[in-house]
């Protein structure tokens, strides 16, 4: 080959990776600040409280979908029981509110710890088995967690629990406004964490083990430990996303804390948006949850689940890389 380029030529020619990566991170950080600022402005100006209740649900789904995707998207282990973690977060917060009127940060921290522990336990027991057994085990987890709650009278059992969570601080301008801001902060933090995982060596190692666990091991990736870490992070995120619900709703019951709809959405949103990058879950959640919120006045929740299921199947069959994948194909590039 006469026109063979040398490594040095390419190394010089290629765009300096570190500076441009740094620039992209800066843009991302500014975007995060912008989103939070927008939240502050909206909570100060919008009058209709319904917006805050609906907005809370949509943003909660951004957090849930992002948390699920750390394990399901990056590591490729499909957790069919995200509500087990979400529900544990809800009930951890409920317990703390009932027992000691715990403030929100305490509940969030405790829920995160509980979710991480549950994730570790689930990973420890099931990660050695791949594929369908892992999926079955995650489904069983929901049933187990819900059964436990059903049998704890202190947590209201099957009939639920009314609570008096601490009120929002005065500067927040009201409970719905405050809860929206809290959930927005959580979602932004999750997305930032997910992006960090993605661009770090950890993300690369996760993608490697997703492609081939054996080859990843032989390339020095401690696959089992890495999967456990992904389980713990994902579990913590899902549980944290559940904790504020107690402060948002003041009444909780197993049916909503462990709802099938939430599980289905948590899986569907990243799959529809695209599970390879943080953009996918965000996009999927915003689209799907907004449509659901807008339509919830007119269609039943059963129909809702059916529609989500059909859309999900369509994407899995036709566009496995989701909306992000479609856009990449159309524009002919693979973004980071």
């Amino acid at each position: 080959m006469s026109s063979r380029e040398t490594a040095m030529d390419l190394a010089v020619r290629r765009p300096g990776r570190s500076p441009s990566a740094g620039r992209r991170s800066l843009v991302f950080a500014l975007g995060c600040v912008g989103v939070l600022a927008l939240g502050v402005v909206l909570t100060r100006t919008v009058e209709n409280p319904y917006i805050f209740f609906a907005g809370y649900v949509v943003i909660q789904y951004v957090a849930v979908a992002t948390g699920w995707n750390v394990l399901g998207g990056y590591a490729g282990y499909i957790n069919f029981g995200p509500t087990a973690f979400y529900g544990v977060g809800v009930y951890t917060a409920a317990f703390l509110v009932k027992a000691m009127g715990a403030p929100l940060p305490v509940s969030i921290a405790a829920a995160g710890a509980a979710g991480a522990l549950l994730g570790l336990a689930m990973g420890w027991m099931t990660l050695r088995v791949q594929g369908v057994y892992f999926a079955i085990a995650t489904i069983a987890l929901v049933v187990m967690a819900e059964t436990v709650v059903h049998n704890i009278d202190y947590l209201g059992g099957a009939s639920g629990l009314a609570l008096m969570p601490p009120q929002a601080p005065a500067w927040a301008g009201g409970q719905p406004q405050f809860m929206l801001m809290v959930m927005l902060a959580i979602a932004v933090a999750f997305v930032a964490a997910a992006r960090w995982i993605e661009i770090s060596a950890m993300g690369r190692a996760l993608r490697a083990l997703k492609a081939s666990e054996v080859a990843a091991e032989c390339a020095g990736v401690p696959t089992f430990r890495l999967k456990l870490i992904a389980c713990a992070i994902s579990g913590a995120m899902l549980a944290i996303a559940g904790a504020p619900y107690v402060y948002y709703a003041s009444f909780i019951e197993p049916g909503t804390a462990f709802s099938l709809a939430l599980s289905l959405n948590a899986i569907a949103m990243p799959l529809i948006g695209g599970k390879r990058s943080w953009v996918g879950p965000v996009l999927g959640a915003l689209l799907l949850a907004t449509v659901q919120q807008a339509a919830s006045v007119t269609i039943s929740s059963e129909l809702n689940i059916l529609v989500v299921g059909v859309v999900l199947i369509a994407f899995v069959a036709v566009a496995p890389d989701g909306i992000v994948g479609i856009v990449e194909k159309l524009t002919g590039r693979r973004g980071a």
Partner: peptide
């Protein structure tokens, strides 16, 4: 101890360059 596989096991979903960065990151 490094090995290659008789039936290639590439890290799909990433670039050729990144394939090489995985073992460098770890080792």
């Amino acid at each position: 101890l490094s090995r290659s596989f008789q039936i290639p096991k590439p890290f799909t979903g990433m670039t050729v360059l990144e394939n090489l960065l995985v073992p460098i990151d770890q080792i």
